[in-house]
Amino acid sequence: MKILFTVILLPIIVFGQTKSDFEKLIEETNQYLNQYSLLSPFADEYYSISTFGLSKKEIKEDFEDEYYDEMLSENKDSIQSYYMIMYFQRKITENINQIVKHPYFCKVSIKELLNSNELSIVVSEDNKLYNFSFDEKTGGTYRSRISITHYTEFFPQDSTQLAEFNSFFKSDGYNGIFTLKTDEGTKYVLTSSARVCLSCFETSVRLITFKDNEFKEEFKYSVSSRDWNEGVSYNHETKTIAVDYHIDDLTPQCYCSGETDEDKFSFDVFADNEYSINCKCKFVFNGKTFELVEESWKKVDNGNRKK
């Protein structure tokens, strides 16, 4: 009877420790995110170390070293702001990578637990593909983000395979992940948008599939534009991709199929300031991939366009 009791009790104890470790990771990550949200690349040059709520152990391990002397103030109680930005970036990234590998990860709603406004989390409807991203805080006009993508059924065999997985996904992350069930298996639609300079905006839609322990891209359309309200978008209800933009110096051609007819679809964007060219495309998912069903372009009076 005593042996039976021990066999039953052991999994309960192990489960309790696993949950406790996971909860500690979540709490710690939320603390790091909250501290990171207070940092700005435009703030004062130094931050007081005591303002970050770090434990004595963390301060001893991370700041009491000759390597950090040049980053500290003269009396060594404050540290350069750019280092604290990188410090919390590293801590947040390390913790997220631990969280997604934890056995308790698949038992919870991670979006409810990591609820800081600093962190964006998008999840596929089958709860298998995750993307975490947050502002890199470089202070530049390119609003770059730090992105971590996780797929529950990907098991890297070596560092090369892991590197290939990471390079497959956009470094700035995604604002949407949608699941498509097909005869060929599950496919995912990824949508993204990014500000890459003061007046440069990039939008993108990708169709990907997972097979033989790797992702492959089956369709992609992206647009670089001067107008935030233009570009490429995806409607999951109708499984339709809509492209709508005016040609400019970033995208000086109007085409949908990928095969450009120079006479028909290429224009001198600086030749006539009175008119501009509006390009439109429409793609519909046909059960396997996105198929072009409509394409058009027209001259637009710039005076009417600005009204």
Rank of each mutant, 00 (worst) to 15 (best):
203 T>A: 09
99 I>V: 07
232 V>D: 02
189 V>G: 00
240 T>A: 11
290 F>C: 10
298 K>C: 03
27 E>P: 05
193 S>M: 14
267 F>Q: 10
42 F>E: 13
69 D>I: 10
268 D>L: 07
154 F>I: 05
21 D>C: 10
204 S>G: 07
208 I>W: 00
283 F>Y: 14
277 I>A: 07
180 L>N: 05
193 S>Q: 15
247 I>K: 00
306 K>H: 11
61 E>D: 08
211 K>C: 09
219 F>T: 03
124 S>V: 04
130 Y>L: 02
41 P>R: 07
108 V>T: 11
160 T>W: 10
221 Y>Q: 05
199 S>E: 12
54 L>R: 13
253 Q>M: 14
190 L>V: 03
187 K>M: 07
70 E>Q: 13
108 V>D: 04
16 G>E: 01
112 E>A: 03
96 I>R: 01
112 E>G: 08
255 Y>P: 09
74 E>L: 14
27 E>R: 15
138 T>V: 11
199 S>Y: 14
153 E>G: 06
114 L>N: 07
114 L>F: 09
228 W>Y: 14
267 F>K: 05
66 E>F: 15
217 E>V: 04
180 L>R: 02
227 D>N: 13
250 L>M: 09
164 E>K: 12
263 D>N: 13
31 Q>I: 12
54 L>Q: 06
296 S>M: 03
45 E>Q: 03
138 T>F: 05
182 T>F: 02
31 Q>E: 08
121 I>D: 02
306 K>M: 13
76 K>F: 01
87 Y>L: 11
76 K>P: 04
274 E>P: 09
154 F>E: 03
94 E>K: 15
63 F>E: 13
296 S>Q: 06
9 L>A: 08
183 D>H: 02
